[in-house]
Every structure is written in C-alpha cells, then in structure tokens.
Amino acid sequence: MHTDNDIYKEIRPYNDDEVSGAIQRLVNDKEFTTAILNYRFPQFSGVLGWLLIPLIKRFLINKWSNVKTVEDVQRQVSKYMHATINQSCDGVTCTGLDKLDPNKAYLFVSNHRDIAMDPAMVNWCMFQKKFSTVRIAIGDNLLKKPCATELMRLNKSFIVKRSAKAPREVLKSLGLLSSYISNSLETGNPVWIAQKEGRAKDGNDKTDPTILKMFFMEGRKRKQSFTEFMPSLNIVPIAISYENDPCDVAKANELYQKQTSGSYEKGELEDIDSIIQGIVGQKRRIHVSFGDVIKDPIETPEELAVEIDRQITANYRLFPANYIAAGIEHDSVTPEEKAKFDEKLSPLPLGVATILKDMYAYPARKQLES
C-alpha cells in the first residue's frame, strides 16, 4: 500500500493502516500484558496473575478500540502525558516556538538527559501550540523486546540501528537513516534526534559531529556541498532542562564505577528501569527552549556542532540546584533550596556525591564561560 515508503519499512514508524495490527500484537504479547499486570496490580502478579491476564486483554481491547490512526495514538499519548506531568513535575514551560512556523518541518537536534521524557516534552510543547508532533529517532538498543518496538513505532519513532557492526552494514543503515530524515522533512514531518548517542550523564551537553555527517550523507548522494545541503534541513537546536533529574543518582553511580574500576556492566533491564524512573520520578520544573533555525552556510560538521552547542548552552534554563552546585550566587538560591540540595547529597558516598554535584554545576559553569 505504501510503495513510496517501503524502502524505509524496517525503520519507519507505523502508518495509519498498520495501527490496528500493532495494537492487536501488543494485546496478544504475553510480556506486555504481564508488565501491565505487575504495574497496575502488583499484589496479584504472583500466583493469581494468570487469572487476570484475560481481563487485562479485554481492558486493553476496550480502551484502544477507537485508536485507528497515528493521530488517535498521539491523542492517547497526550492524555498519558497530561497525567504524568501532573504527577511527576511542577509544570512545564517552553520558549522559542513562537519564532517557528507551524507549517514548516524542522530537524530538532536536542540535548539528551532522559530517554523517554526528552522527546515527549518537546512533543508536549508542540502539541499545546498546535504544531505537528515530531518523528523520534530511537536507538535499537532500547528495543530488545518486541512489545517495546511496537509501542515506539506506534508513537512515531523510527529506528537507529546501533547494533550494526560490519562497516558495510553500518554505512548502509546510516545512508538509509539519512535518506529517511530528509524524506520526513520534505513530506512535512518534523524530526527529533539527540545531539549524541546516549544521555549526557555528566551534565555536559555536547553535539557529536558524526550525527551531522550522517545527516549529510543524503546531501552527498544528491551531489550537493555541505554548505548547500545543510540549511535545507531547517536544523533547530533544543535545550531541555529538568530542575531535578530522577536518574541522577543512578547516572552518578555509573560514572563513579567507571572512574574507580574502569568499567560498568549494565543490568539487563537497566534501560527499561531508567525509562520508568524518568517518567514517574519527580522532576520538579521542566523547561524546553527552542533555538533559532540554523540558516547560515556552515562549512564543516565540526563548525555546525559548535553552533548547536552554543545555542543549547545559551538557552539552557538554569534552576537553583545548578547555581548551588556551581557555587554561584543567584536570586533564586534560598536557604530552603540549599537544604534540599544538601539532603540529596548527604546519603551518597563522597565520590558519587562529587560527580552528582558536578552534573548539576556543569550547565551553569558552561553558561558563565561562554
């Protein structure tokens, strides 16, 4: 049916006519229904769990019976987001969208602090302001379970194949990805991608030029120069700031282990735990700052990375914790805020506490220096 899209079939989000099938597969996915059972009814998840599975299936079928299109899925997600925001943070603010045109498709290159919440927050702001929501780049390392893949592709996510190892395979998948991003923008679909692979666990938001080289693969294929092709992508840097990062202690622990023993072994379900913690954990205030479209011709991926970093650093919204950690005097720093921050650090081993403090201090120091 979608012949034009079929070269992207392996990586693209689902189209309207694929939504019902994906929902059907989710409802019949034992791991998925069991996960919902454990989450919603932990007291029954043991011996009697199997009795509830048919009920959960029926509940899902009823709940999702009206979800037939990608737009329907987005509406459902926005309801979940509304509840999540109410329960896990003290409000979301957003700046810079008024400078953008709702009828244009942008390539949003964003700092990366939280696996699921970063693109969700961007979409939340866009949804509120009547912009179309973004297609989300997601690494296949997060899609180890079939139900995760179904959920993500239902929610406008496309797949970045990080697991490819052979050089030819890597080049092929990067070329397809580059082509898909250009195709999305040219068909009016905005795209969100993180500025580097993996979250900035140390608080230092830095763009990896490799990602920008990947964007350009399609330009090279079209025999265009970097300066010619890149402005056509309408790149807009985004800075997302969380007053409190629910995964901060886990990130600091990981970095401390790497520092002290040289390596860190990820647990099998660690990514999933990070996603859940990021969604349900307390974040206090969240700010999403949309930067300016990069229209000036820039010669190299490295120079483009510098410009994206400059905007993200300048637009990052600093909160009291950032000033306190960096030891910077500021009007927003009250004795209550200081006590709150000390309370966060006090139970932690010194090495971990130092890393955590640096994580919050980094954006403030960086803004001062720039």
Rank of each mutant, 00 (worst) to 15 (best):
K104N: 00
I56Y: 12
R153M: 07
A194T: 14
P347R: 02
F59K: 04
K30T: 14
A321F: 05
R310H: 12
K223N: 00
I211F: 11
L356T: 10
G46S: 06
Q282C: 08
I240Y: 03
P349A: 15
F158R: 07
C94R: 07
R153E: 03
L52E: 07
N15D: 09
Q259G: 00
R285A: 06
L348N: 03
L233P: 04
N38P: 01
S110A: 15
K366C: 15
V352D: 03
Q128E: 12
E169T: 13
T334R: 02
V109P: 00
I211A: 12
F44M: 15
D114H: 11
N66E: 09
C89K: 04
D118Y: 09
D245I: 08
E31F: 09
D6C: 08
L345I: 08
V92D: 02
R199G: 13
W192P: 11
L185S: 00
T313S: 11
A239F: 04
G175S: 14
V236F: 06
L26P: 00
M81T: 02
A314Y: 02
F32K: 05
C94I: 07
P102T: 11
P297Y: 03
V19W: 05
W192R: 10
R58M: 04
M81C: 05
T93C: 11
N62H: 09
I181W: 01
V70A: 11
I136G: 01
K99N: 01
E10D: 09
A194Q: 04
S289M: 10
K196V: 05
P301T: 05
I355E: 05
R222E: 05
K79H: 14
